[in-house]
């Protein structure tokens, strides 16, 4: 199935992200070369995943795994097949069904296999170009794998290009800011604080026009 994923990146993600939109990546060198690693990105659009996929070399694409909500992406068989086989998502349940049943087991397994997880800590796309409250899930991953680098990535413009509720992308030049990997300091609260701060710092470098 890795051939399908490479074809998707070459035939869909590259033309859409690199030609139709055009992204400008700041500090590309901070991206992890190989797994296990986690990319923590803000989320405004379905294009976010496409944009993140273009940041990795083609021979690594099979190991880059977007973590996505099972209730949304497995909703019907066609979307489920596409999400699992073409995008290569790791589906997780957003709501816990039973106590003690860890929804992140599949993420742990992927990291054990040396894969690169794409996590959107806001949980959903929300309002375009606004950051929502971060969810705590990612801190469990950080706690369990304190030595795996967690790299914050702030993106701007993709939410304008294709906000929630729209199925037609409208071209805008987009910006991607890669942050420094976060260090695990021993507790989940301070990890979340650090992640939030890191997003704010990346956002400050952006000079974006007003978007109402």
């Amino acid at each position: 199935m890795s051939l399908l994923r490479i074809l998707f990146v070459v035939l869909v993600a590259y033309p859409v992200v690199l030609i139709m939109l055009g992204i400008n990546v700041r500090h590309r060198a901070r991206l992890p070369r190989r797994g296990p690693a986690v990319i923590a990105a803000n989320h405004n659009s379905h294009l976010d995943t496409l944009a993140l996929l273009t940041l990795f070399p083609l021979h690594r694409i099979a190991q880059v795994r977007p973590v996505a909500a099972a209730d949304y992406f497995l909703a019907n068989r066609l979307i489920a097949w596409f999400s699992l086989n073409v995008i290569g998502i790791i589906p997780i349940r957003r709501k816990r069904e039973r106590d003690g049943d860890d929804p992140l087991v599949a993420c742990y397994a992927a990291l054990e296999r040396g894969e690169i997880l794409l996590i959107f800590p806001e949980g959903s796309r929300g309002e375009p170009e606004r950051m929502a409250q971060l969810k705590f899930g990612i801190s469990f991953v950080a706690e369990r794998y304190p030595r795996v680098p967690i790299v914050p990535v702030f993106m701007h413009g993709l939410g304008k290009s294709m906000p929630r509720g729209e199925w037609l992308p409208v071209p805008y030049f987009c910006d991607v800011f890669v942050g420094l990997p976060l260090k695990w300091r021993g507790d989940r609260e301070s990890f979340m604080g650090e992640l939030e701060q890191s997003f704010h710092k990346l956002k400050e470098k952006l000079a974006a026009p007003e978007y109402l």
Binding site: K160, P163, E166, L168, P171, F173, P209, L212
Partner: peptide, 21 residues
Amino acid sequence: KEYLSLIPTRRADHRVLFWAY
């Protein structure tokens, strides 16, 4: 595209921009 990325735009105009393109 560069012009639209520089100027303020409105969320409501998403589809209008598509027609403009």
